[in-house]
Design a protein around this nucleic acid. Structure first.
Length: 592
DNA sequence: CGTCTCAGCGCGTAC
DNA sequence: GTACGTGCTGAGACG
């Protein structure tokens, strides 16, 4: 009863506030920015459009359908009916007329349904704001309007008003954002990488990738049966039925009922994650079943059952969204669905890849992946002779590292030593801590520390590069990649040593991961252009951080292979040079 | 009081 | 180190 009355009074309070706002329109106008707009026809704006050098552009859309066209020459925003699209088409496709946008990719994407190729996008608010502050989680009109123009724009506008505001901002943020980008020496990465990449990503999203729904349906049934059996066995061994997917319920079965020894804690209780289960494998027969259950359940719910639901009914294909303004380092991310974390490591997971196929059975998928791009970037940036030489001599880099670190002849490097060296290499790229390496290798921190020390003994210039990068980061509070992409590191100002250490690792990781991201972005732009120049029909459809996936026309297989290899390897002149491996197959599994 | 929604969290997949 | 998605859980909103 009390709660209900409290809720009511709060509701009443809000309603009163709303009324108050309406009663004082003057105060409202002062506090909140509202761009003016007018409904116009093509004829009314055609004179201005003809003589204009630049125009801000936006659409009001329902999913991918354009309902209205928004144009601004600086003052009022013109709202035109979608029916006028045909008349505006030549202007949209005229690369000499500069288009200023708030977020260009959805516009490019939507226009493709009307067979219009937007050209001349010279400014994109989202991309500019991202390059200036890549660690922000979003770039809303309200935040950006205030930050760069001191405008008060309310959050949570309806979609019509939001579209108007975005169009207005696309015009008026050009000057302040461009100025900031220049000050930060970010023009190169902005103009040569992010802006030209945007239409490439739009095209890849538009194309999508083929998926064999029947294959997944069959697999789903198989998995259901296997999961069912494991479920029964787990219940039997537990002596009761419970929700296996609930970490808290599993925890009480394992650590209370079965009296197993807890390995580590989480915020809320005892951890049951895969590393914990692995350590308990010899303690109780239920553990092995749990490990198997977890893997199958993960694959089924996240991929096998989820992916078919996301197939576009019109195109019969999967269309991911490549997010260009999400990661702190400059990598892309992929969502709805995420096609950058499709399983590959286990046999159970591999079968998912088999379901990714080209549109026509006669075509192929072609996968082109950079060999060890991050370690090559490290060799390049550090100028370490030993590491550089390993690549120049086409050595197995983990094996070579093992030989160096453990002082063995190459032919005496055991599987075990190679595995350890590989973990050290990963650790270096991630910004190593002895704690992290110890956890990875299941050894104590002291032993891990000696591995790191031995590594730095053999690769002294990697050591000095890391030291230089970190001390530079403390001085400037940011780091930069090969292309000048910037990441701020406010963590380095923290009084908490754990947060500072995190900042130091991020500094190293961002330079290496971000530089690799720069390179593959350059490669994507170059490859896409080359495909059109050479009149090939094959198309790039996915990017997974260090690899590009193409739908290849069978007849173009060899031409495509050499084009892609050439373009990817020459995207950036690195020392040691970049190396790309190519393979093809009837599906994503067999093209790896 | 039951139903719904949402955010946080544990977990696991990728590079 | 960098991401994203699923399922569970508890809190608060809703009717």
């Amino acid at each position: 009863m009390k709660k209900a009355s409290e809720a009511f009074s709060e509701l009443e309070f809000n309603t009163l506030l709303e009324r108050l706002k309406k009663l004082t329109p003057e105060a409202e106008k002062e506090a909140h920015f509202e761009p003016s707009y007018k409904e116009s026809s093509f004829e009314q704006i055609s004179t201005e459009l003809k003589k204009a050098k630049k125009v801000a552009l936006n659409f009001i859309r329902e999913s991918d359908e354009i309902n209205s066209i928004l144009l601004s020459f600086g003052d009022s925003v013109h709202v035109l009916e979608a029916a006028e699209l045909e008349k505006i088409k030549p202007y949209l496709e005229d690369k000499k007329l500069k288009k200023l946008t708030f977020d260009s990719k959805p516009l490019i994407f939507a226009l493709r349904f009307d067979e219009i190729r937007l050209a001349g996008v010279s400014f994109d608010v989202q991309l500019g704001a991202y390059l200036l502050q890549p660690t922000r989680t979003n770039y809303t009109a309200s935040d950006l309007g205030f930050r760069y123009l001191k405008l008060y724009i309310g959050e949570g506008q309806d979609s019509f008003r939001q579209a108007i505001i975005d169009c207005y901002l696309a015009y008026h943020l050009e000057e302040p954002l461009t100025k900031k980008l220049t000050e930060g020496k970010l023009e190169k990465v902005y103009n040569e990488l992010e802006l030209p990449l945007s239409p490439v990503l739009a095209a890849m999203e538009y194309r999508g990738i083929g998926i064999n729904k029947e294959e997944l349906k069959t697999y789903s049934n198989e998995l259901a049966q296997m999961i069912n059996k494991l479920e029964e066995e787990i219940y039997r061994l537990a002596g009761e039925e419970f929700n296996i997917n609930s970490p808290s319920q599993l925890s009480s079965i394992l650590f209370e009922k079965l009296k197993l020894k807890p390995v580590k804690k989480t915020k809320t209780g005892y951890s049951t994650d895969s590393t914990v289960l692995a350590k308990l494998i010899n303690e109780h027969p239920i553990i092995e079943n749990m490990i198997n259950y977890r893997e199958l359940a993960k694959i089924k719910s996240t991929y096998v059952d989820a992916l078919p639901k996301m197939v576009n009914p019109k195109t019969k294909r999967l269309h991911t969204t490549f997010n260009q303004t999400v990661t702190a380092t400059g990598r892309l991310s992929s969502s709805n669905p995420n096609l950058q974390n499709i399983p590959i490591r286990t046999d159970i997971g591999k079968r998912i890849r088999k379901a990714f196929v080209p549109a026509r059975a006669t075509d192929l998928l072609l996968v082109a992946d950079y060999s060890q791009i991050e370690l090559r970037v490290l060799a390049h940036l550090s100028k370490d002779e030993t590491l550089t030489k390993a690549f120049e001599e086409h050595k197995d880099v983990h094996q070579a590292t093992a030989a160096e670190v453990f002082g063995l002849p190459v032919n005496k490097v055991s599987e075990e030593a190679r595995r350890k060296a590989k973990a050290v290499n990963f650790g270096i790229v991630y910004g190593i801590s002895s704690f992290g390496l110890a956890q990875q290798l299941q050894i104590d921190a002291k032993e891990a520390a000696t591995y790191i020390e031995m590594y730095f003994n053999r690769y002294p210039k990697v050591k000095s590069f890391i030291d230089r990068t970190v001390s530079d980061a403390y001085k400037k509070e940011f780091v930069k990649t090969l292309y000048g992409r910037c990441r701020q590191l406010p963590e380095l100002k923290s009084n908490d040593v754990r947060i500072r250490n995190f900042g130091e690792r991020s500094a190293i990781n961002s330079v290496i991961q971000g530089s690799a991201a720069d390179i593959i972005k350059q490669a994507m732009i170059n490859v896409e252009n080359a495909l059109f120049t050479d009149d090939l029909m094959s198309r790039m459809v996915l990017q997974v951080h260090d690899e590009l996936i193409f739908e290849a026309m069978a007849l173009e297989k060899s031409a495509l292979s050499s084009l892609v290899k050439k373009q990817m390897e020459s995207a950036y002149v690195l020392h040691p040079s970049l190396e790309v491996n190519i393979s093809t197959g009837p599906n994503w599994l067999e093209a790896k």
